[in-house]
Amino acid sequence: MIPATFDYLEVDSADAALAALAEHGDEAKLMAGGHSLIPLMKFRLATPAVVVDIGRISELSYIDDSGGHIAIGALTRHRALETSDLVKAQAPILAHVAGQVGDPAVRHRGTLGGSLAHGDPASDLPAALLALGGSVVVRGPSGEREIAASDFFTGFLETALAPDELMTEVRIPKVPNAKWSYQKFNRRAQDWAIVGVAAVLNGESRVALVNMGATPIQAGAVEAALAAGASIDEASAKAAEGTSPPEDLNGDAEYRAHLAQVLVKRALTEAS
């Protein structure tokens, strides 16, 4: 399992990364920690002609208090999120979920931006971002724009990030007093969730689902029911509404729909 050949470009700034993207266009692929991209390349499911290594752009690795929100550089590693006092105090679910990704070695290398940009519906961090109502900041040839989490995941392994854009920052609302829960159900600890649920209750209720569709998604029906005053039982019964869960060796769509209900109920109960 060896990657096909490619040209390698290491860049040390966001501008240099954008320049590399502009020069190489579709042939280039950004690599942050590489923990999503390299496995695909080893199986030759991804064969970029140019790999642009953004992993050591130090200006994109930070966790800052920006007043109303936490500003997190896109290249911040999972381990840094997991152990950040600021994140633990102001958005504890994010620190917790970062600690649920893969295994410790993966968390030492994988980055928040890389995980979000990969857009895997089975990943943990996108659900946390959705439940927190965060956003991502991307920079491209025409400048910078902020994309709400709810608009970011557009299709299976597809995001609103354009091919010539670079994610630079993730913005997380401060929710120090929010009730929250993350429920991850799998058969083996290191694996992706068969189904996962992230819930943040902070006046309004946000509930996001892992591995219940082509993209990371919000459980809209659950959120609406809670907003309308439904009980936990009533709301969690709607967990699978509007979803199209995948089918694989771990379970079919019906089982996943059931799991979503169970896990939403557990999440809401724990968070209440």
Binding site: M31, H35, P39, D53, G55, D103, A105, V106, H108
Partner: peptide
């Protein structure tokens, strides 16, 4: 990246060396 037989330390932290380019 499942088995960890390739685990090493990079700057003191564990990493799976089969899921990194030497260039990294």
């Amino acid at each position: 990246s499942s088995c960890g037989a390739c685990t090493i330390h990079i700057d003191g932290e564990s990493a799976k060396s089969c899921t990194m380019l030497a260039a990294q």
